[in-house]
Computed example of a mutant assay.
Amino acid sequence: MKIGLFFGTFNPIHVGHLTIGNHIVEHSDLDQVWFVVTPQSPFKQKRNLLDNYQRLEMVYLATKEYNTLKPSNIEFGLKQPNYTIDTLAYLEEKYPDHQFSLIMGEDNLKSFHKWKNYELILENHGIYVYPRISKSVIPEQFKNHAKIFNISAPIMELSSTFIRQEIKAGRNVRPMLPDEVWKYLDEMNFYKNS
């Protein structure tokens, strides 16, 4: 099975994340997209970052109706700070029958050469890149690379930061979130005072 790994804090997951994940699975050779919830680093305490399991719960609520979109807490048990290369090695050991690729915005591809062991990642894994409004200058070494696939997904400039700011300001963000996620956030009063 071919799995695309979409990493993020998902604080909170929103309709933009789901749109990109679904578009990529529908327009590529991937069988599933796993939303890998990045755990809070013990070295970087972010004031407005919800607990790991609360963010995982929101990803579960957002994806439970989709056969091809799955939540993943795979990084919760890994040593921190964690690097993508370590997560990939762990996944390959745990799921030897799966092929794993990365999903990232083109803004992340711009700095991909700074990632730990990026050459090894590229040698063994595909990278599915979705566009961003702010056009990034892609380094020459990544242009026309056999393992990098540009997916013409819809450009979604919705951000979790914007949603948190709107909630704090008391504005209605319901259209920006999957319904179950909105209900969960509303019941738990998340982000209202952060």
Score class of each variant (00 low, 15 high):
residue 129 V to W: 10
residue 73 N to Q: 06
residue 47 R to D: 05
residue 157 E to S: 13
residue 147 K to D: 03
residue 62 A to L: 12
residue 105 G to N: 11
residue 58 M to F: 08
residue 101 S to C: 02
residue 75 E to T: 07
residue 117 N to A: 03
residue 118 Y to D: 02
residue 114 K to C: 04
residue 96 P to F: 12
residue 108 N to V: 08
residue 75 E to A: 04
residue 127 I to T: 02
residue 143 K to M: 13
residue 129 V to R: 07
residue 58 M to D: 02
residue 57 E to F: 08
residue 156 M to V: 13
residue 100 F to P: 00
residue 138 I to H: 08
residue 89 A to G: 07
residue 109 L to Y: 08
residue 131 P to F: 14
residue 120 L to D: 10
residue 47 R to V: 03
residue 98 H to P: 01
residue 116 K to E: 02
residue 133 I to N: 10
residue 153 A to T: 15
residue 148 I to K: 03
residue 57 E to R: 14
residue 145 H to I: 05
residue 134 S to W: 10
residue 145 H to R: 08
residue 91 L to K: 10
residue 56 L to V: 06
residue 157 E to N: 15
residue 142 F to T: 03
residue 132 R to K: 09
residue 91 L to V: 10
residue 118 Y to H: 07
residue 100 F to K: 00
residue 148 I to Q: 03
residue 118 Y to E: 02
residue 105 G to M: 09
residue 148 I to L: 03
residue 48 N to Y: 00
residue 131 P to V: 14
residue 139 P to D: 09
residue 148 I to M: 03
residue 64 K to H: 15
residue 135 K to D: 08
residue 87 T to W: 05
residue 157 E to G: 12
residue 68 T to V: 13
residue 49 L to I: 12
residue 56 L to C: 07
residue 57 E to Q: 15
residue 48 N to K: 00
residue 65 E to K: 14
residue 115 W to C: 05
residue 102 L to W: 04
residue 54 Q to C: 11
residue 64 K to L: 15
residue 49 L to K: 05
residue 101 S to D: 02
